[in-house]
């Protein structure tokens, strides 16, 4: 499946498309599974992460696999060429910076980084996705 490149996403953001625009990009070919899989592989305890992710999704019904993976792709500067260890490094750094800059969300009143909350959501959604 053809995927939208990181540059295309960033161009869309620069043009003011924002998250809604990203949703449209997703419709044109962004493959959420391409990012969801390595994100799931990073989890040492995927069931636990999925449990957190389900609560996040229940509290944020506008979020779905497209939105969370697209958000993560942009904010982790990810594309299909990104190696797993680089994705790991970016994820950890982004979580640190989220907390430092108060970019946090409440999940059942647990205070989580907005990145890790979406990571857990991606893991939850990937687990639910039907196998191809």
């Amino acid at each position: 499946m053809k995927t939208v490149s990181r540059r295309a996403i960033l161009r869309a953001l620069a043009a003011g498309a924002g998250v809604a625009g990203l949703g449209a990009l997703g419709c044109r070919g962004f493959d959420p599974a391409a990012l969801a899989a390595p994100l799931r592989d990073l989890a040492r305890n995927p069931e636990s992460l999925a449990a957190v992710g389900k609560v996040f999704l229940a509290e944020n019904p506008e979020e779905n696999l497209d939105t969370v993976t697209e958000w993560l792709a942009v904010n982790l500067d990810w594309d299909e060429a990104t190696p797993a260890d680089e994705l790991t490094r970016r994820l950890v750094e982004r979580v640190r910076h989220d907390f430092r800059d108060s970019r946090t969300v409440r999940v059942d009143n647990w205070l989580l980084s907005e990145t890790e909350a979406r990571w857990t959501a991606a893991v939850a959604l990937a687990a639910e996705a039907p196998a191809e």
Binding site: R44, N45, S48, V52, T88, V95
Partner: peptide, 16 residues
């Protein structure tokens, strides 16, 4: 949710 959040925090530490 507390044990799951703990494991999430643990995962991040290990990844780091």
């Amino acid at each position: 949710l507390a044990p799951a959040v703990e494991r999430l925090a643990r995962d991040l530490r290990e990844l780091a």
